[in-house]
Simulated scan of single mutants.
Amino acid sequence: MFTISAPMLLRAYAAGIFPMAESAESQELHWFDPERRGILPLDDFHVPRSLRKAVRRGPFELRFDTAFRAVIEGCAESTEDRPKTWINDDIVRLYTELFDAGFAHSVECWRDGGLVGGLYGVAIGGAYFGESMFSRETGASKVALVHLVARLRAAGFALLDTQFVTEHLSRFGAIEIPRNDYRRRLAAALERKTDFRGVDQDAAVAALLEAAPAPRP
């Protein structure tokens, strides 16, 4: 069986292609290059009023890159709302290798010493490729998303790739764009120099909440 390596995965992302497994039990990965790609415009990120209040209240301790593998494993968990996931053993292996090499990052919500939600993705240049998110407490993944967008904006990122647009993501302003448009944006983003870890997070979140578009009706 053909084995995908971490360097090969990076090249695929830079070309606009990403892998998924059919299920957590699958032994194979499949490549995807959708005709229409989901993105979340960083300059037009919508923060619902209730979420804005929750972020300001700070119900969770936010951390970055302290429990990357645990975040992937959380995203792979079966839940009542998501009985099946596409994260198999190869996905866990590959993205952990990317994290070890500095190309993948996690956003984590903690409470009372326990990981209660978060998300992870891949960063190349000024492009961040969001992979998956999870919540063990209400609102944890949403708070993590706000903190991710704040950090990406402050660090100079230009593209947040969501792969597809779900009803959940559309509430934050996610849109679909044609493949050619996506590749143009990706090429420009890859040329950027960014520093994901060199951000004053409190200042970044405050700037995002102040700049967020007015709540939608």
Score class of each variant (00 low, 15 high):
14 A>N: 03
196 F>P: 03
140 A>S: 04
173 G>L: 04
115 L>E: 06
43 D>K: 13
163 Q>W: 05
80 E>Q: 11
35 E>F: 05
158 A>M: 01
59 P>Y: 06
115 L>H: 04
186 L>E: 06
211 A>W: 03
193 K>A: 11
200 D>A: 02
114 G>C: 10
119 L>F: 08
156 G>H: 08
86 W>Y: 05
205 V>G: 04
153 R>W: 14
197 R>N: 09
197 R>P: 02
22 E>N: 12
54 A>R: 15
138 T>Y: 03
43 D>H: 13
57 R>E: 11
45 F>Q: 12
126 G>W: 02
124 I>S: 00
188 A>N: 15
84 K>T: 15
68 F>L: 09
17 I>A: 08
6 A>Y: 09
119 L>D: 04
174 A>I: 11
81 D>W: 02
57 R>W: 07
97 E>Q: 15
106 S>T: 08
187 A>G: 03
51 L>T: 05
8 M>W: 10
91 I>D: 06
142 K>S: 07
84 K>S: 03
212 A>H: 04
199 V>W: 04
105 H>V: 00
99 F>Y: 08
50 S>V: 12
60 F>P: 11
72 I>P: 06
12 A>L: 09
12 A>Q: 15
200 D>P: 00
21 A>N: 01
175 I>T: 13
186 L>I: 13
111 R>E: 07
153 R>Q: 12
93 R>A: 13
50 S>T: 15
116 V>D: 10
51 L>F: 14
76 A>T: 05
25 E>D: 14
206 A>C: 03
30 H>W: 11
18 F>K: 04
70 A>I: 11
19 P>C: 12
123 A>L: 00
178 P>Q: 01
75 C>Q: 13
21 A>F: 02
204 A>F: 01
20 M>V: 03
169 L>F: 02
148 L>P: 05
118 G>I: 03
162 T>W: 01
64 F>T: 14
178 P>E: 13
63 R>C: 06
123 A>D: 00
93 R>M: 01
79 T>P: 06
191 E>I: 09
172 F>L: 14
166 T>H: 10
63 R>V: 05
7 P>Q: 07
145 L>F: 15
45 F>D: 01
48 P>C: 11
19 P>S: 10
202 D>I: 15
114 G>A: 15
125 G>V: 12
171 R>H: 15
150 A>V: 08
149 V>A: 12
27 Q>S: 14
44 D>V: 02
138 T>V: 14
40 L>K: 14
163 Q>G: 07
151 R>S: 09
85 T>W: 10
111 R>Q: 08
140 A>P: 04
29 L>K: 02
24 A>L: 00
18 F>D: 01
185 R>G: 09
125 G>C: 02
79 T>A: 02
144 A>N: 03
